[in-house]
């Protein structure tokens, strides 16, 4: 993960290098005299060669200093700390909804293959993967805020504000989980050991929940991890729809405001969060998959 983050910071740093415009000029305003701009450039170290500046960035970052926003002069870390909770809440609720609804529906679909429930859940899963989340959000605002006046449309003050964004983001992830759970379940159900379990007279519920589900859920767990980092990306657009000031809107603001330190820090932060979630999933594997577990134990024994 460390080399990935380092590489990512390098790529982002080079991308921001391509951005037209002079941050010193932007900070001082259009009418500031040229000498002052030059002085500030020298002060900020903008006149140093590219690699010197990159090295300085990495060095400072290793000491916990990720730079100061060009626009607000607030340290980027503080800004992220203020903005991230809103995004985390939406992403967390979205994953929760997707898991709580998606996995059971997938299991039912697999167990009752080709039934009316299966077909309708497959068709709706297909539809949900094709609906742009931001459009789903707009439609929900239209229905629940404009027509029915049940839920607030914009803002992030109360828990009610998070219902619609979470659902809008959850829909596509839920659809993926339904399809994935169903196909892995179907694969497992066809295995010989399931037939053996049935032949030995195990109750259907036991066959489904003990024998099949444990094996079928392994790839699904990975998918949940991936969907969490997808949600961080999706938040970028959904937060815009619902006027929530989270990490996503922060990124968009820093792009439009040419605020490169802010952008680099927030993107790195998102990648870091995604990386930790995937690391967590890998660790979880060692607990739920006996095969991986025994591998570790063997290696430890040697």
């Amino acid at each position: 993960m460390v080399p990935v983050i380092l590489g990512l910071s390098f790529i982002l740093f080079s991308i921001m290098e391509l951005t037209p415009g002079d941050p010193a000029r932007a900070m001082l305003g259009e009418y500031a005299p040229q000498e002052e701009v030059e002085q500030l450039r020298e002060q900020m170290g903008l006149n140093d060669p590219f690699f010197v500046r990159y090295w300085r960035y990495v060095w400072n970052a290793l000491h916990g200093d990720f730079g100061v926003s060009y626009r607000t002069n607030i340290p980027t870390v503080t800004e992220i700390k203020n903005r991230f909770p809103a995004t985390l809440k939406i992403a967390f609720f979205a994953v929760l909804i997707a898991v709580i609804l998606g996995i059971p529906v997938g299991i039912i679909s697999a167990v009752k293959q080709y039934s009316a429930i299966d077909i309708s859940s497959m068709v709706s899963a297909l539809l949900f993967t094709s609906i742009p989340p931001f459009w789903l959000g707009l439609l929900m605002i239209l229905l629940f805020s404009v027509k029915l006046h049940i839920l607030p449309a914009v803002g992030s003050e109360t828990w009610k504000h998070f219902i619609m964004p979470a659902i809008a983001m959850a829909a596509a992830q839920m659809a993926t989980l339904v399809r994935m759970t169903r196909s892995t379940m179907l694969e497992v159900i066809r295995q010989d050991y399931i037939r053996t379990a049935k032949a030995k007279g195990a109750a259907p519920a036991r066959v489904i929940f003990i024998h099949s589900l444990q094996n079928a859920l392994l790839p699904v767990v990975t998918a949940v991890g991936i969907s969490f980092s997808n949600l961080l990306g999706g938040a970028l657009i959904i937060e815009n729809v619902f006027g929530i000031s989270g990490l996503g809107t922060l990124m968009v603001e820093s792009v439009t405001g040419k605020d490169s330190p802010m952008l680099i820090s927030s993107v790195l932060f998102a990648a870091l969060v995604g990386g930790f979630v995937n690391l967590g999933v890998d660790l979880l594997y060692t607990f739920i998959d006996p095969r991986v577990k025994s591998q570790y134990l063997k290696r430890g024994a040697k």
């Binding site: 080399p3 990935v4 990512l8 790529i11 391509l18 990306g233 990124m251 990648a271």
Partner: peptide, 24 residues
Amino acid sequence: MRIMDIFLAMPGTIMAVAIVGALG
């Protein structure tokens, strides 16, 4: 593949926003 991993480390939307932000 390590270079590819770097690009995969963050969601596509965020990467796209960063690039569009730089290029306009």
